[in-house]
Structures are given as structure tokens and as C-alpha cells.
């Protein structure tokens, strides 16, 4: 045999809870965790548990009757299902999610939308609200003037409607709160830092509105009055599909950029974003401001 005198052999097992457990009880260790529900980190190639007792979920695969992690992240268990949630990854769409996206391409009867996912999302012409009545048949003339609704580079907020056979998602903007975005700034964050909330439209008291897209795109814009956004009967196509910003005064501009910067700072420390944290941070940052 060979000698490895100069090697310092690092410990083989790492665990957050108990740093000094030996190799041998690794399996038992995982079993314990699976019972206790405490946080466990894992990385590709790490054996989690036996495939006979547990089912494999996302982020795992089975080899040799063992459930093995395939991504870096947190191990989660629901009854007998073991999944690994990646610490950092692209957005995994689910039906009903609110997303913010950017048009990348205009195609016949559809738009391609970049939504930070593994493929561009698709927004069909039939799933947007068109001028002149919400429930209206799509005409050929609509198809010819698609660019007047959404152009390449436009930002929009939409909801995930369904999936296509190949796993790409289909969006819809058939609600008055969805549609083209203006009067603001985009912030991009890792999707895992955005939690599902009751409402993803947040109004901060500093005159700034936020749209927290579950795909990690956040739209920070000037506050829009409730009645203007949901203009009931008077669905004003001019306003909804306008690409021109309203007049934004200096204090609102300052507030928008302050909120965007706060998001960047919080995210760089991987702090999950909620309205309360953002509000606290905003007030705190104002307090720190010292006028000379």
C-alpha cells in the first residue's frame, strides 16, 4: 500500500448541529434529523437516506438503493418524501405565482418573456386584456399591432397560468392589476429570498409601491392610487399600454432609489424580503441620514 504521510485528512462528515460525529453514524444521523425536523445542509453526491424507507423528491436521485442529493441546499422532508431545496437557483414556476418579466421577443400571436426561469415564459395574445372590452375576440388587426401592447424590453407583471408540454410556462395578464410596468426601477434578487405572501403588491408609506415577483424580479415604482389602478369599467388602453412615465417628483425618485438600494443591501446578506423588514430598513436608513 501507499503511505500518505504528508496528508492531513480532514473530517469526512459535516453537520450544522453536531460537528463531531463520526462517519459511521452518518446514516443514523440523517435519520435522527429526519425525525427531529432540524435544518440540514447537503451538497451533490451526499447520501441522505435509504431509498426503501423514503421517496425521492426534487434535488435528489436514487442510486444503489440510496437517496442521494444532487443540489446544494437544505434537506426537507414531508412524511416520506425527501427533497433538497437549492440555496441558490433559478426560479421554479408554479401555477398562480405572480411574476415580473421582461419581453424578449415578439412572435406570431405570442410574446416571449424573460422571467428568470430555465426557459423564457410565453404570453399568448389571447391571455392579455385588449382595448375595447375585456372579453373580446382577438382579431387579425390585434395580431398586427402586438408591438403597440408590448414591445421588446418592456417590463410586465403577470401570473403563471399553466405549463406547456416541455415545461415552459404560460403567463396571463387578465386582471387589471397586471400589465405593463412603468414609473419605477427593477431590482433582481435570488428567487429563494422572496416568500409567498398574501399580497405581492406592497405599498410602503413613503410613497413607493413594490411588486415582489416570485421569480426574484422586484418592481419598485411610484405609488399609484387605488382607484387609478383598478379603473373598473373604464379600462383605459392608452394608460395600461403606455410606455411613457408619469411626472415623478424628486422626493419620490429618492424614495424609489432608496428602497432599491435597501433591497440590494438586504439581499447581499441573503435576508428574505418582507414588507416589514423593508419598512424597518427604510425608517432606519432615514434616521442614519445626518444633514450637515
Amino acid at each position: 500500500m501507499f503511505e500518505f504521510t504528508s496528508f492531513r485528512r480532514p473530517p469526512e462528515t459535516f453537520s450544522v448541529s453536531s460537528p463531531d460525529n463520526a462517519d459511521a453514524d452518518m446514516d443514523e444521523d440523517y435519520e435522527d434529523f429526519l425525525e427531529s425536523g432540524e435544518t440540514k445542509l447537503t451538497w451533490p453526491g451526499e447520501s441522505l437516506t435509504s431509498a426503501q424507507d423514503y421517496m425521492r423528491g426534487h434535488g435528489t436521485y436514487v442510486d444503489n438503493e440510496q437517496v442521494i442529493a444532487s443540489v446544494t441546499g437544505i434537506v426537507e422532508r414531508v412524511n416520506k418524501l425527501i427533497t433538497v431545496r437549492a440555496a441558490r437557483t433559478r426560479y421554479n414556476p408554479e401555477v398562480g405565482d405572480l411574476v415580473v418579466g421582461r419581453i424578449t421577443e415578439v412572435q406570431p400571436r405570442r410574446w416571449k418573456v424573460d422571467a428568470n426561469s430555465r426557459q423564457d415564459a410565453i404570453l399568448m395574445l389571447s391571455s392579455v386584456n385588449l382595448p375595447g372590452g375585456v372579453q373580446r375576440r382577438k382579431l387579425e388587426s390585434d395580431e398586427l399591432q402586438m408591438r403597440t401592447f408590448f414591445e421588446e424590453g418592456d417590463l410586465l407583471v403577470a401570473e403563471v397560468q399553466s405549463f406547456f408540454g416541455d415545461g415552459s410556462m404560460s403567463l396571463h395578464t387578465r386582471s387589471l392589476s397586471y400589465g405593463k410596468l412603468r414609473n419605477g426601477q427593477l431590482a433582481t434578487v435570488p428567487p429563494i429570498l422572496i416568500r409567498r405572501l398574501k399580497s405581492h403588491f406592497i405599498s410602503l408609506p413613503c410613497g413607493v409601491d413594490l411588486i415582489l415577483g416570485l421569480n426574484g424580479y422586484i418592481w419598485v415604482n411610484k405609488h399609484v392610487k387605488q382607484n387609478e389602478r383598478e379603473g373598473e369599467e373604464g379600462f383605459d388602453a392608452e394608460a395600461v399600454y403606455s410606455s411613457r412615465n408619469d411626472e415623478i417628483d424628486e422626493s419620490t425618485r429618492a424614495a424609489i432609489s432608496r428602497v432599491t438600494n435597501l433591497i440590494t443591501v438586504l439581499v447581499s446578506h441573503s435576508i428574505p424580503l418582507t414588507d416589514t423588514i423593508l419598512l424597518d430598513a427604510y425608517d432606519w436608513s432615514l434616521e442614519q441620514e445626518c444633514d450637515p
Partner: peptide, 11 residues
């Protein structure tokens, strides 16, 4: 690749 959250069978 491991950081990007891309599924790998192993290192």
C-alpha cells in the same frame, strides 16, 4: 455548478 444549484450526480 454546485453553487448555481444545477443538479449534479456527484462532485
Amino acid at each position: 455548478l454546485a453553487n448555481a444549484g444545477i443538479p449534479l450526480t456527484d462532485f
